[in-house]
Amino acid sequence: MERFDARRWDEKKRIGYSRKVLQYFLHPKNVGEMENPSVTAKAGSPACGDMIKLYLKIENDRITDAKFRSYGCAANIATASVLTEMIKGKTVEEAKKIKFRDIVEELGGLPQIKYHCAVLAAEGLKQALAKWDVIQGRRKIDEKFVKLILAAVIDPLTGESVLKGDKYRGCKIEGKKVKIMLNIPKDSLEAEAFEEQIREAFEGLDVDLEIEFVES
């Protein structure tokens, strides 16, 4: 039924997606949710058309299972799926070393315009592993951690991280209380998208989260 034939795919002929990207797109591995995951992470937003959620099972500091769900283009689905394959069986420390370029390479390349999908997948992983360290008590929630989470929070109007430009004003952390301050008008369209993304990103952590926008 499908015209795609992996053996006869002409890499140069069409749209710039490699054979491997198309294979992962058409037949993605590790799709779905996980019961009792050790940690989850969400990167991107539906507003920018690019979002992934990762579910990791970690036992004795080794990733024993990984699953994903996605909302996005072919590159988004393929990067998330191949990432789950790449990290299965790796220790947390090994997985931390994975950069977005490794994902691109694993897929046999990506069109330049789609690199951000691999960046998003790498940020999602980084976030998940940092959260794991917090859950394990090996890492405390500080501004560096908050920024790591915010790196994967995307402005739907620009497709860039909320950390780009002067949208991020700073954060205050006292015990469990985490207050993130953004230079974004309270009742703007983006405010809602940012709030939803940030709250979801902190999911699973024992924090009392507050997000402060500026008055419109």
Partner: peptide
């Protein structure tokens, strides 16, 4: 769902 994904699947079919 996202349009490019729909498009690519349909194109291949």
């Amino acid at each position: 769902v996202e349009g490019e994904s729909i498009l690519l699947h349909c194109d291949l079919r």
